[in-house]
């Protein structure tokens, strides 16, 4: 639940930042478009299986909010979108991840392959955003809070997976490995966040 709430908080922080400042400066449209793709391919099971009302509502919210974020960046506040600095090649993520999900999955069915694709893609979808921060050498505090909440969410899931492994015998190798990779990608950022942002400074990297 803490993981889900952290994820929800991250999405709300980002939407509020864009909406209140009427600007998406410093935000990678590519990462946001990848997240929309992640939620779309993962939550196709909305049509096939019902888990709980909570589960359904969260899925719908994640899908709708991700497309809304993409709409804000690429249409409504397009003039403020910093495309010159958002130069990470998304196809270098989508194509290998697509290949891997066809090769390594737990069941060779369309829905399962798309789910696997979404798990793999999510683990690396933040790279365009982290690349953008490293390229411009700075991030606004609010962007840092967003990244911290978003990174924490998968880290919190790891604790839940450990719990579920011991008490329910539940273990999803694909989700666990991807979740660990995803969390590791944030480690450098977590370090900067704790040493700088929490001490009232904004993230600036040496040129």
């Amino acid at each position: 639940l803490c993981g889900d709430m952290s994820h929800l908080l991250a999405i709300i922080i980002l939407l509020m930042k864009i909406w209140k400042t009427r600007s998406c400066a410093g935000i990678s449209g590519k990462s946001q478009a990848l997240f929309a793709l992640v939620f779309t391919t993962r939550y196709l099971d909305l049509f096939t299986s019902f888990i709980s009302l909570y589960n359904t509502i969260m899925k719908v919210f994640f899908i709708v909010s991700s497309y809304f974020t993409v709409f804000l960046i690429y249409f409504k506040f397009k003039a403020t979108y910093d495309s010159n600095h958002d130069t990470f090649r998304a196809e270098f993520l989508v194509v290998p991840v697509g290949g891997l999900s066809i090769l390594v999955n737990s069941e060779f069915t369309p829905l399962e392959i798309l789910w696997t694709f979404s798990i793999y893609l999510e683990s690396v979808a933040i790279l365009p955003q982290l690349f953008m921060v490293s390229k411009t050498g700075e991030a606004e505090s609010i962007t840092s809070h967003y990244l911290f909440a978003l990174g924490s969410y998968r880290a919190l899931y790891i604790f839940n997976w450990i719990y579920r492994y011991y008490f329910e015998g539940f273990f999803d190798l694909i989700a666990v490995v991807s979740g660990c990779v995803q969390t590791i990608l944030y480690c450098d950022f977590f370090y900067l966040y704790i040493t700088k942002v929490l001490r009232g400074k904004k993230i600036t990297l040496p040129a």
Partner: peptide, 10 residues
């Protein structure tokens, strides 16, 4: 450990 029958996580 058993594999997930369906995905109950978000």
């Amino acid at each position: 450990a058993k594999a997930a029958q369906f995905h109950d996580e978000l």
